[in-house]
């Protein structure tokens, strides 16, 4: 399923290349949505999914910070993403883990003289990950809750394409569609996840409970990022 989605994304991005016109450099802002799989190097992820990769979705906004007429264009970006996993753990718990990522990134794009609509780029990113999970027992007991923060940094490279302005008719001369496909690797922290039951926090008269150490979770691994957006 994940591979199918990956190849479909690549195909869609590739096809979009054929439809674009020459890019105009006067569109420093960009906003978009992204999808793509996040593979995991560590088997600890398998506790929360039977798939080897987590589907991810996200939003981002960015701006070019160097003069756009140059050969090399520097851009910065802020974004949020969500990766999810779900499975039956040890035939006893319905395990769900949502990982939110907040990132800041910098990219260096190359404006090809012979095809200005096509821009290869390199990108570095970093930020925070927030793991938010729960384990619901299949039969007896209370749900266990997980939440933890860690860091992530990544690097990757890709291609972006940009269309010609398409809203000139209403006076917005800088609006263009853009699409990109990027592959890279993300390093993350491996926090020790702690599971707490909501039993005592929901009932002040309940007997206090001791949290349980589930072990280390790492979501580091290669990623593929496909995005579409608007440059303006």
């Amino acid at each position: 399923m994940t591979r199918t989605m990956t190849f479909a994304s690549i195909l869609a991005a590739s096809l979009s290349l054929t439809a674009v016109a020459h890019a105009d450099p006067d569109s420093p802002w960009v906003a978009g949505i992204e999808i793509g799989p996040r593979w995991r190097d560590s088997a600890s992820w398998d506790a929360f999914s039977t798939a080897v990769a987590a589907p991810a979705t996200g939003l981002f906004v960015g701006r070019d910070v160097s003069p756009s007429q140059r050969l090399l264009v520097v851009g910065v970006e802020l974004g949020w993403g969500l990766e999810s996993g779900h499975r039956t753990l040890r035939q006893a718990y319905d395990a769900t883990l949502n990982t939110h990522s907040l990132h800041a990134a910098a990219s260096l794009r190359v404006r090809l003289p012979f095809a200005r609509w096509l821009q290869p780029y390199a990108r570095v990113s970093g930020g925070a990950l927030y793991h938010d999970g729960r384990l619901d027992p299949e039969s007896d007991g209370a749900a266990l809750f997980i939440d933890d923060w860690t860091w992530h940094v990544g690097t990757g490279g890709g291609l972006s394409v940009t269309t010609a302005p398409f809203l000139r008719g209403i006076g917005w001369r800088s609006a263009r569609f853009t699409a990109l496909v990027e592959a890279g690797y993300r390093w993350t922290g491996a926090p020790t996840l702690v599971a707490t039951t909501g039993r005592s926090s929901n009932d002040p008269d309940a007997i206090p409970t001791t949290p349980v150490n589930l072990g280390s979770l790492s979501v580091a691994g290669p990623y593929l990022r496909v995005a579409v957006g608007l440059r303006f």
């Binding site: 409970t209 349980v212 589930l214």
Partner: peptide, 8 residues
């Protein structure tokens, strides 16, 4: 004092 989920 209680502990729950310790088998995990």
């Amino acid at each position: 004092r209680s502990i729950e989920g310790f088998l995990l």
